[in-house]
Design a protein around this nucleic acid. Sequence first.
DNA 1: TATGAATGAGGCTTCATTCAT
DNA 2: GATGAATGAAGCCTCATTCAT
Lengths: 195, 195, 195, 195
Amino acid sequence: MKKKAEERREQILRAAFQAVSDKGYETVTLQDIADYAGVSKGVTNYYFKNKEDVFLSLLEWVTDRIYQHEHQAVSQKTTAIEKLEAYIHSVFIDPEKNKKFYKVYLDFMAQASRNPHYRKINLKFYENCWKIGRDIVALGQKEGTFSSDIQADTASKMIRSIIDGCLIQWLMRDEDHLHEFYKKTCYEVILKYLK
Amino acid sequence: MKKKAEERREQILRAAFQAVSDKGYETVTLQDIADYAGVSKGVTNYYFKNKEDVFLSLLEWVTDRIYQHEHQAVSQKTTAIEKLEAYIHSVFIDPEKNKKFYKVYLDFMAQASRNPHYRKINLKFYENCWKIGRDIVALGQKEGTFSSDIQADTASKMIRSIIDGCLIQWLMRDEDHLHEFYKKTCYEVILKYLK
Amino acid sequence: MKKKAEERREQILRAAFQAVSDKGYETVTLQDIADYAGVSKGVTNYYFKNKEDVFLSLLEWVTDRIYQHEHQAVSQKTTAIEKLEAYIHSVFIDPEKNKKFYKVYLDFMAQASRNPHYRKINLKFYENCWKIGRDIVALGQKEGTFSSDIQADTASKMIRSIIDGCLIQWLMRDEDHLHEFYKKTCYEVILKYLK
Amino acid sequence: MKKKAEERREQILRAAFQAVSDKGYETVTLQDIADYAGVSKGVTNYYFKNKEDVFLSLLEWVTDRIYQHEHQAVSQKTTAIEKLEAYIHSVFIDPEKNKKFYKVYLDFMAQASRNPHYRKINLKFYENCWKIGRDIVALGQKEGTFSSDIQADTASKMIRSIIDGCLIQWLMRDEDHLHEFYKKTCYEVILKYLK
DNA sequence: TATGAATGAGGCTTCATTCAT
DNA sequence: GATGAATGAAGCCTCATTCAT
């Protein structure tokens, strides 16, 4: 039954993800989430302590999924350049998915700016992302592909800043066709920075 | 009397800015704003059509102020490098102010991701910022300081992406002392990109 | 200045009449009335104690005007039948005016059913109307036109009941062209009753 | 469970009827209705979309109940005169009930004069009432009791006009003992008209 | 006299949460 | 486990009224 419960929770989180993406963090109601999940209103309160608990769980779940996806993509490549490409490629997955995630992610960052619980979960996500970046940079330096003037640690922070900065700006412009532009340019900026 | 009303509106916007920064876009109430402004509850509805009108006005007001400040800083310098430095310097003004603004700005971007009214105001802000960046890059290219391989237009988008990406990451980490790090590194990344 | 004030009050009452007819007793605001009167918001409170005072004055003013009009019409005729015709004619004046008045009058009767102040004013109106009816019936009986089986007093109550009943039903049906039907049939019913 | 909900709605409508009768359409609050129903404030919004929905439902419910009552009374008699008597008797049921209903009904007519939703419901009520009247008149004509000069259709409109006109005037006069007078005279006027 | 800025009470409505079934 | 009826807190908004100018 532990198994069943786990599935139920994920079903709700998945619904919550879609619901929040559609309606926004503060606008979405527990009723909305229940509707999206195709369950009754009470269920959410049965599997989660309260609304905030749903959202904290959602942030954790979604950032972890994103990270796993990125990690997997990168780990399948061998050279630093290939890994960097794979990373960017997995991050800029496609307009639909990026939109869905970054809408929710912006909501959570807005919360995180005032609520340490969200901040803590986001920090874990950051650290995972930084790790990916740091490893790529370190590998590139070992390969001689990237400049040894830069610090892998510092670079990892910048890589994620640039990625998030680009995808947020892309989201704000609300023109799907620019996705390609931001993906390509983001990659170029990072590459030039690392070389 | 037109004058008086204008002052009143700004007084309320100023209060709203502080209130939203403290409590968050969705959490803040009109009562909060009135309290911050030291006026009665009804005043907000007297000077603004409704809550959303306050917020739209606030976004417009605050982004315009920011832009004016940046513009002024840059226009006082003559070389591209000086201008870029001045730009970064005026953006990364200080931890307190950056925190205050980016908290509110994140809130608004979260709204903008679903509400075209906010998106439109933000786009105007973007365009202003891009203009600053584009002019600096174009000048740098004319001076021979910056590479002529890059497009000023493209670069201007990246400059702002990097800036916002850095400041958001900085805000999320909630460590004031990192402000210096992000400011310096942001500048370096941009410079390396432009050269 | 007593004169001036009286004119101002009437200007406001006239505006209030139109405003209430358009928007309804409970929906209309003092601002609406001021707008209709082309004066500033404060004026209403200057010439009337409060909102209820405006409405009480309005009911008094409008019912008195109606009565004066009816009275004048009837007094110009000599025979009972002519007077009755003139009465009905002046009551069923035209669709536009009947609509305007009965909308307001219904509002006031709804109030009067619970508020004795309105009830008292309406009673005065009733008594005026009854007087018209009673005089017509008495004259008709003296002439030998109307049956002497009926009591003039009783008949006067019925005459007004039938009139109001007809015009209210007409108003509720919201078909202007039925005005003629109700006018004609109302007259016939009364006549048959009196003969 | 559908059953339970239906009962709840009726419980609320019953409470609303009493509350509106006591306090008036515009004065009554949802809190009042909840109090009268002995439930919490939220319940009303649970069973009805909003305040207007409560009122529309109330008008429909109450006019239907009245009609059913009248219809039943009439259908138990066989001759036209008996039916007419039964109709008047069921309409002029007693001062208490007439007061309660006509207070509410006046409120609704005041609304109906501007709001087509109310008007539509009232029209259905009218049509039901007219049907009762028309059938009585037609029967009377077939029996030879009533004049064949009048049109049943026209008469049905007049019958209801006279009834409403009398009961409204009676309500406005606020003297319970006059109930008998209006009942008797109303009947006489109608009878004389039909003969 | 007249204006309209300011106040604050009060109502509708939404919704997280509880809890009996 | 699951449901959804019921509660009541809290916010937005409207508007009569006051009052300084």
